[in-house]
């Protein structure tokens, strides 16, 4: 996989799923989400801003996350995203759906 993953490299909706997952432990700002995904994926997933922010807005639009301005650990102004109750439900649902898809794909790849 390349340096920055654009949504077209992932299955549709996967980036949103990853963001929801990244927010599961607690509120994060945009850079924090990118770092979390990078670290958790052993440097495989590097999300660019041009993919991250539209995805975050889609989550906002659907009411799955909410955003608040706050101050970051190194004393900078940053916008923090938090999961809403609907977002938690969505994460569970999408997670299950994703598992189903992946195992289906694996079955296909494993055959023959």
């Amino acid at each position: 996989m390349g340096l920055t993953n654009t949504p077209s490299d992932l299955l549709p909706g996967t980036l949103e799923l990853l963001i929801l997952k990244a927010l599961r432990p607690g509120a994060k700002h945009g850079y924090g989400i990118v770092e979390h995904l990078r670290v958790a994926s052993d440097d495989v997933l590097r999300i660019g801003e041009s993919a991250l922010y539209p995805a975050l807005q889609r989550l906002l639009l659907n009411g799955w996350v909410k955003a608040e301005w706050g101050t970051s650990e190194n004393n900078r102004r940053a916008r923090y995203y938090t999961l809403t109750a609907a977002g938690r439900r969505q994460l569970t649902a999408e997670h299950a759906e994703f598992d189903r898809m992946v195992s289906a794909i694996q079955r296909v790849l494993a055959s023959t």
């Binding site: 700002h29 945009g30 924090g32 801003e49 922010y53 970051s72 900078r76 102004r77 940053a78």
Partner: peptide, 13 residues
């Protein structure tokens, strides 16, 4: 503002 904050965080790193 948010994107600028993003950049600032990266610069810090």
């Amino acid at each position: 503002d948010e994107i600028e904050a993003h950049r600032a965080h990266r610069q810090d790193a």
